[in-house]
């Protein structure tokens, strides 16, 4: 039997003595398209950064394809939150995407011909090929998001982690980009942070609801009970199907 893509057992994380995540157990199988939802400050981004090895947990384990995270880090592609992003930087789309080749490409000198071929391929897949020479300062939110996805894909990962990839784009672009994720999901596992439970539930096969600890994890649609467990009783539900 194949190992799960991501397996987290008994994970605890605190920062400056403040407990952020408690007793997290989760498994993402190969081929999963999993969603991670929950309130702001519930620890979603922190959990993603733990999986990326950017933070170190006080206790518990994270394994990637059955092996310790440390050795497997290069198998993970990462799409950071657009809001945190330095979109004012003087760099072209193609040079941004090429950064996905870091760590795979040679240590010295510039990117190789093969790096450039791979970058061109993922730019085609993410439909930003025409923007290759544009500076990132001139892009719209949706275009920038695709650039960040292309950069993650350029490292040819086996797992893709995305932090709120649709926070800054309109509904139409949101649907397009989720269709792209769906096709990427054919070849790799995906874990996506989203604030929009109803929307992601059309695409994902598994959802984890996080508020300091995992409140629910299942493949079935999210019910109002789980929403209440997550956000408390004072939320009004707005159903919007696409």
């Amino acid at each position: 039997m194949s190992n799960p893509a991501i397996e987290i057992t008994n994970l605890n994380f605190s920062f400056d003595k403040l407990s952020i995540l408690e007793n997290i157990n989760m498994t993402i199988e190969q081929g999963d398209f999993a969603g991670l939802v929950g309130p702001n400050g519930g620890g979603k981004t922190t959990l993603l950064k733990l999986i990326l090895g950017l933070y170190k947990a006080q206790s518990g384990q994270i394994s990637i394809f059955g092996q310790a995270l440390k050795k497997q880090r290069k198998l993970i592609g990462y799409v950071p939150q657009y809001a945190d992003f330095n979109s004012d930087f003087p760099i072209s789309v193609q040079d941004t995407v090429l950064q996905g080749r870091l760590g795979v490409s040679s240590f010295f000198a510039s990117y190789s011909k093969r790096d450039k071929e791979i970058a061109l391929n993922v730019m085609q897949e993410t439909e930003i090929f025409d923007l290759a020479d544009r500076s990132i300062q001139s892009l719209s939110g949706g275009q920038m998001q695709r650039v960040l996805v292309a950069r993650a894909l350029a490292s040819q990962p086996k797992i893709l982690l995305l932090d709120e990839p649709t926070a800054n784009i309109d509904l139409r672009a949101e649907k397009d980009i989720f269709d792209l994720f769906k096709s990427i999901n054919q070849r790799m596992s995906i874990l996506i942070i989203s604030h929009d439970i109803a929307f992601v539930s059309d695409y994902i096969n598994k959802v984890f609801c996080l508020n300091k600890t995992l409140v629910c994890h299942k493949a079935s649609p999210v019910t109002s009970d789980t929403i209440h467990a997550l956000y408390g009783d004072h939320v009004s539900e707005v159903h919007h199907r696409h």
């Binding site: 950017l54 290069k74 990462y78 330095n86 930087f89 040079d95 950064q99 996905g100 760590g103």
Partner: peptide, 15 residues
């Protein structure tokens, strides 16, 4: 360029 642009991503890529 990578650490100037996005230090977190560079870290993830093993730089």
């Amino acid at each position: 360029v990578a650490i100037s642009f996005d230090i977190e991503f560079a870290t993830v890529r093993g730089v």
